[in-house]
Design a protein around this nucleic acid. Structure first.
Length: 485
RNA sequence: CGGGGCGUAGCGCAGUCUGGUAGCGCGCCUGCCUUGGGCGCAGGAGGUCGCAGGUUCGAAUCCUGUCGCCCCGACCA
């Protein structure tokens, strides 16, 4: 709870800092179920804001929401060879129900993703090219039995959205795949203030069952990469296995061209690892549950009554102007205690209001992302009359400045490397842009020897031929290598 | 699955070696007091010591078994 111990610093122990921060900021708890977490109201509020923004963007691009069953007949998974091989080790299977064991042919898996069961429906829904495109999204929980879990970043059960679409032509499906990747990029940058690299995954890193996988990749504060979202061009792989067909303009039957794409509650982990500091959580205003807290200060009951009244009026004014504000007039806690607490919880703005301020018609504003060398907030005095305008300005500026800061960090930790020795030396330095011959065996060897994996081949990284850092063989262009979550 | 750690009050821990009927800090409740970066004092509530057997007059402590969680590696969003 409100422990007065300091958080471990990022420099001391990054992993501990992350876990402690989550628990102290009341974002999540461990549960009694191995690998599963409880998302607490403070954490869920961020997810709700993410959902709202993303859902709006999906609707704008023509998608509609639906819901499919949690349980998938085991046999469905087996139909697509790559798909089942990719997911088999992670499946939880229901083998007992209704008070009796289920026969092997009757067993269900808890969805690890829904391509298969959704295709069963798609096959029924689609008759003609006139039924296309079919643009569906689902908000759901999924389960993947992980060997090793980490709060938000990898848990056995997690929440996500999965888009599933059907198209008449390969080209349309490909366009959709890239369109949704771009939606994710916009969301990451505009809402999360998190810069990402958009690009294609290698063969070995692609989604099991997809033709091609694209991802958005972000750099965390420990310089490790985090895959923050994926968009898959599925081709006709699932359509063929589930007979998702339509009669085309030529009168003949064709298999649908499909895509799927998803982001999960992992984004909350990404948000924490991108912006938070040694004082606790930092959340971009667009995703923050609350924007501002007004701390009521006063010695005597008379003073406090006056300040409370003014604070309530100011809060009402702020709320009417889109600054989500709460008033804290709890008398049992010292103001200083509250400052630490709201810093920890990631409140964007803190407004201090006391008797001295009322005399001067002012208040004190502190921005969560602006700290002095001693770690305490930079404070500025504002006239009460200008507070709403200044608060809005501060939030806008904070949103922008978090993105700029993250961009600068990524730029400072991205390097071109031109030899395998250089790559090994810089293995923990961040994103490494290196030439690679495209051979999966070489990719596996690099992973084995250095811990570095290919993240993606960014669209905006100019592809110029070169020599593979390992074999010296021709390379079509540089690809991003990094340690990853 | 391999290696390590831990299960005692809501949280963090001591007590276990050397058995004697459970304690500390924080938090929580009540009252007084206090309020611009973690106030203070006084009183109080709260635990079948992970679970199951066993040894013993007596087990948090010894023995056997068992369950669970966390961390580090191999699998993955």
């Amino acid at each position: 709870m409100a422990s007065t111990d300091k958080l471990p610093t990022r420099a001391e122990n990054f992993a501990d800092w992350y876990v402690e921060l989550i628990q102290r900021a009341k974002l999540a708890d461990y549960s009694d179920v191995k690998g599963c977490m409880v998302i607490r109201p403070n954490g869920y509020a961020i997810w709700e804001n993410m959902q709202r923004a993303l859902d709006g963007m999906f609707k704008e691009t023509g998608h509609v929401n639906a819901y499919f069953p949690l349980l998938i007949p085991e046999e469905y998974l087996n139909r697509e060879k790559e798909h089942v091989e990719g997911f088999k080790p992670q499946l939880a299977v229901v083998g007992y129900a209704g008070g009796a064991p289920l026969e092997p042919g009757q067993r269900y898996v808890i969805r690890p993703t829904s391509e298969t069961i959704i295709n069963r429906s798609f096959a029924k829904w689609i008759q003609s090219y006139r039924d296309l495109p079919l643009l569906i999204n689902q908000w759901a929980n999924v389960m993947r039995w992980e060997m090793r879990t980490r709060l938000f970043l990898r848990t056995t059960e997690f929440l996500w959205q999965e888009g599933h679409t059907c198209h008449e032509t390969e080209g349309e499906a490909q366009d959709e795949t890239l369109k949704m990747l771009e939606v994710y990029r916009r969301f990451a940058e505009d809402y999360m203030a998190m810069p990402v690299l958009c690009g294609q995954k290698t063969e070995s890193e692609k989604f099991p069952g997809a033709v091609r996988t694209y991802s958005i990749e972000a750099m965390m504060q420990d310089k490790k990469a985090l895959q923050a979202g994926t968009s898959h061009m599925l081709g006709q792989n699932f359509a063929k296995m589930f007979e998702t067909q339509f009669q085309g303009r030529d009168g003949k039957q064709h298999f649908a061209w499909q895509t799927s794409w998803g982001v999960s509650t992992r984004l909350i982990g990404a948000l924490i690892l991108t912006h938070s500091d040694d004082a606790g959580l930092v959340v971009p205003p667009k995703l923050a549950a609350q924007h501002a807290v007004i701390i009521v200060i006063g010695k005597t009951p008379e003073e406090r009554a006056k300040v409370k009244e003014r604070a309530a009026a100011l809060a009402a004014d702020l709320n009417q102007n889109g600054v989500r504000t709460i008033v804290d007039d709890d008398e049992s806690k010292m103001p200083g205690f509250k400052y630490y607490e709201y810093d920890l919880r990631g409140m964007c703005l803190r407004i201090e209001l006391g008797p001295k301020d009322l005399e001067k018609n002012q208040c004190v504003l502190a921005r969560r992302d602006q700290r002095q060398a001693d770690g305490k907030a930079v404070k500025q005095f504002l006239q009460l009359a200008e507070t709403v305008a200044k608060a809005k300005e501060a939030l806008d500026d904070m949103q922008k400045s978090l993105l700029e800061k993250a961009k600068a960090f990524r730029a400072a930790n991205t390097f071109e490397v031109n030899s395998y020795d250089e790559m090994k030396a810089k293995a923990d330095a961040g994103f490494l842009l290196a030439h690679w011959n495209g051979d999966a065996k070489v990719e596996a060897r690099i992973k084995e020897e250095t811990g570095l994996t290919t993240r993606n081949r960014p669209f905006d990284l100019k592809q110029e031929p070169g020599k593979c850092v390992v074999t010296g063989e021709p390379s079509p262009g540089r690809i991003v290598f990094s340690k990853a979550y």
